[in-house]
Design a protein around this nucleic acid. Sequence first.
DNA 1: CATGAATGAGTGTTCATTCAT
DNA 2: TATGAATGAACACTCATTCAT
Lengths: 203, 203, 203, 203
Amino acid sequence: MPKIVDHDERREEILQAAMRVISAVGLDGTTTRAIAREAGYSSGGLSHYFADKDDILRSILVKTHRRSRERQAKALAGKNALDKLWALLLDNLPLDEERSVETLMEMTFWPRAVSSAELRKFQDEAAHALLASLSKLIGEVREAGQLTSHLSDADLAEVLIGVIDGFSVHYELFPERLPPAYQERLMLAQLEAFGFAVGALDI
Amino acid sequence: MPKIVDHDERREEILQAAMRVISAVGLDGTTTRAIAREAGYSSGGLSHYFADKDDILRSILVKTHRRSRERQAKALAGKNALDKLWALLLDNLPLDEERSVETLMEMTFWPRAVSSAELRKFQDEAAHALLASLSKLIGEVREAGQLTSHLSDADLAEVLIGVIDGFSVHYELFPERLPPAYQERLMLAQLEAFGFAVGALDI
Amino acid sequence: MPKIVDHDERREEILQAAMRVISAVGLDGTTTRAIAREAGYSSGGLSHYFADKDDILRSILVKTHRRSRERQAKALAGKNALDKLWALLLDNLPLDEERSVETLMEMTFWPRAVSSAELRKFQDEAAHALLASLSKLIGEVREAGQLTSHLSDADLAEVLIGVIDGFSVHYELFPERLPPAYQERLMLAQLEAFGFAVGALDI
Amino acid sequence: MPKIVDHDERREEILQAAMRVISAVGLDGTTTRAIAREAGYSSGGLSHYFADKDDILRSILVKTHRRSRERQAKALAGKNALDKLWALLLDNLPLDEERSVETLMEMTFWPRAVSSAELRKFQDEAAHALLASLSKLIGEVREAGQLTSHLSDADLAEVLIGVIDGFSVHYELFPERLPPAYQERLMLAQLEAFGFAVGALDI
DNA sequence: CATGAATGAGTGTTCATTCAT
DNA sequence: TATGAATGAACACTCATTCAT
């Protein structure tokens, strides 16, 4: 009997290792050897689990997005529209280690997406999905009489996603300037400023 | 008798060429040869003007920030506080080709800054400078009775810089989703939501 | 209690698989994994039957030559010298699938033999054996009064083996140009031209 | 002024080096590093002159065929059909160092051609060109009344090209068995056997 | 016996950098 | 100054081989 390993589990471990390496030295400084070493393999050991380097990188994004969707599904369950909106916003901010790493990966791939149609398409779809979710929730909040802004749902969603990604960048670069609690407070102020009934939030 | 060349001018040309290359193929795909060719030099010709590749990249950021400061100095001259604030915000958005390229460079270097203390320090100083400028102007606007928000100047500055960088990212990735006019309109709505007297703006 | 397998049989199967792989992708593109997969084994499974890759390749030649000898022994049995000669010539031409594959293997190993003394020795012995057989048969044909050429037996053998290998190469590269029937016809013409009594052949 | 080199000359030198390496260790054992070293370059030095390894290998064949054509053009000039035919046959045999190396290259690429359509096409065209030349000359010889064979021109050409390549293989593998003079004598016997007026040859 | 995970040397290739001209 | 030839380290990737299970 040969040693049997759980391929999905190994892939996950390797992706975690890859993300650690990227966090430490940047995407450009990331070599397959470094990933292999970090994951506890020798130089060619990753080939059992990933076709090539690009497969690893792509898989990081796929995994990150899937995790994010799953986490949000849980975070939003059983809430009213306003609380859902709040939960969705928080979930897209780098408020804990897990989301911080996801944010960093996202940000790391942004410049690459500029010159890669495939990557851009991937990011585009994710951005549209988030915008659509935000818009829908904002519409529901408005219908519930908890929003007074004259801006359209789409406009509001666009502003909110902007703040999210802006905070994300600044937090990754200067974590001490935007600690999680501060991000939350500012995001809440943002909602209040735009006429959301933040007093009704279940915080 | 050696040929006399204007070093600063040549350096500037080379940096422009480098930025064109980076825009086209991304920072990772950028080679010194490609920069040299784009600038009209042969492979080793840049060594007279830059110590090495890193020197070129660093210089792009230095130049970009200096240009930005100079442009803002002009844009802000002879205006009242509210108009200055508006001008400063607009100047940091990718509303024309020049600022779009600057934004792209900035964004391109973000992930590198995560793993480079030197780069991060550079970005940090620039961010603090912008935050300080914004805070100061916001304070002046408040003193002029054109701001009703109960948020602190610093908090408001932080939110505004967040929106700026968020829009920047989205514009570079999906320019058609956030055309300049739309960015302006949303930014104006943002000011209005936070109680700035946008009616008094000289637009 | 270990599974009992017929080693020789397994070796034979593996060699057949190896020859199929070589035919399909060439000797350079042939990997041990590909051979193993083609033979129905997993990656390391061949090690029970062959020491290493080279052992497999070497064995292909050994096997091919042995097969060829056995086949010729049958083909020549009970014939007169002229018919034997004809049968031997035909047997060394790629006139059917089996001989075509043998020919391809032979040809595949030719360039390797140039830089491998061991391989060259092997090929040399085989060539001498064939030359000797041809010479002997030619001598017998001549004694039987069925050959008028003034060339020596050895010279005639050398020319005939040349034609065989020339046709072999061309057939493997461009099979449609030298279909089996055409090869036979030309070989017969060759014999006739050199004064063999081809009319007496039992075709 | 930079060091100016003659690119064509350097390419030629590199190809010569590559051919030496191939002759010594075989095509499979040939690495770009070995070629570079043999040519007097360091590991990456060939990239100025060849796009990649395949470019080098392809160029060897192209060069070999071109050289062969040029040499034949000279060898055939100002001769009658029979002498031309003889010259063409000799020129395609490995009778001196230059032609021996060409033959070895040809033979080295044969097995690769089996599994490479591009390579096969290249070899096919060359073979057809030679066959056509031979056929045409044979026709002219026949018209001149110097050929009595009842075989068609094409059939005769096919047999002759077969002998050529057969001798080529055997010479490369066992040079001492088929020294140049012996090859010539056998080829002459071949012509005589097929009814060519070899007595009229200007040897 | 058979599996397939793991190794690690070796490959082709790229590219920042140096430097003689 | 400018050229472009040359270097050599680094990279992603392949693959024969080993070996615990």
